[in-house]
Design a protein around this nucleic acid. Sequence first.
DNA 1: CGACAAATGTTGGTTAGCCGACATCTGATC
DNA 2: GATCAGATGTCGGCTAACCAACATTTGTCG
Lengths: 194, 194
Amino acid sequence: MNREPSVEEVDPRIRRTRGLLQDALGNLLQKKSFDEISVQDIAEEATVNRATFYAHYDDKFRLLESMVSRRFHELLAERQVQFDTTCTSMLQTFVLAVCDYVVALLGPAGDRRVEPHMESAVIGVLQFTFLTGLRARPRKDGAPADLVAAAAAWAMYGAAKEWALMDPRPAGEEIAGTIVALVAPVLRLCAPSL
Amino acid sequence: MNREPSVEEVDPRIRRTRGLLQDALGNLLQKKSFDEISVQDIAEEATVNRATFYAHYDDKFRLLESMVSRRFHELLAERQVQFDTTCTSMLQTFVLAVCDYVVALLGPAGDRRVEPHMESAVIGVLQFTFLTGLRARPRKDGAPADLVAAAAAWAMYGAAKEWALMDPRPAGEEIAGTIVALVAPVLRLCAPSL
DNA sequence: CGACAAATGTTGGTTAGCCGACATCTGATC
DNA sequence: GATCAGATGTCGGCTAACCAACATTTGTCG
């Protein structure tokens, strides 16, 4: 009945400051390209001191990663992705969300120099979500959940990116089924006997 | 060559916090009426602690006043109201801005209980702007600038409000000329010899 | 009426953010 | 190369924001 006594409560000022910095970068990215944006610009746009920026992020690449992570995480939350009943139906939702996000990332203002940072961020969220889901139901076979989650996350992102770069690009709904069929077996490693 | 050594520099955190609180109230007012909004609601929406609210405003009415002041001030700034050459042309701009703002205030969600607070805020901005303009050009006649600014501000607002409440309301551009004709003499008190 | 819940103000101790100031490290110009 | 301007990091001292706790006010219900 007690709700999570220690979920690592965060100081509201920290939440606010990071949110401000992430939103500031998001706004600036709609006017300039990433490498035209300085830390000073971000700090100013966020109404935050430059020194405060460095108290939260090592550089603007880290900020970019955390921004992409958070937004992708919110996207998943909006679509109410959950890890409980039928895996395949959930995977379908997942894949569609990833496809949408990848298209948005690589779309009009696709900056090839910052792609890797965004990719690792997206994959990180996927991996974390898979891992959380896998941990939620105890298994007793030999495949380590870490490895399973990693493989599934990279596979799904890789497939989605490959699709996003096709020139006459098929509809997302079509390709989603295919990708699910590819990734499901990786996750199923936990389900059947080893 | 030295630029204003002491313009009363304000701590950026204070600027930010007040902006957050004002924006929060603005957002909440699009969902609830003013008296349904608690200080707690505002603080939460602004991601600011409730105690911090009281460090800046005595109550939500003061916040409302400051919000209206700031927004009206920005509206004037956008339309580049200035006090230099021909008074009448400037007054025209002024009156139109006031009319627009009054209509917005008393319009769809006109809450009669909070009107006075908004009115005093708008009048305050008018008064301050007039006063600044009057001070900018030194005069040597007997009428105190304070009184002139106050009379002009109240007259202009009163006329604009009266117009805003007319049932078949004439176009703002028509009535503006009339109001200018009413208010100009009050300000002119400084111009001709006493 | 009393009782209770919820919002309002207030206070002192703790923490995050702000501000110079400084030391790099670029990159452009002469 | 030398020099200069601007961006990047870092640090100690000060200040504003957070929080928990408290007393007070308000409003609602039995």
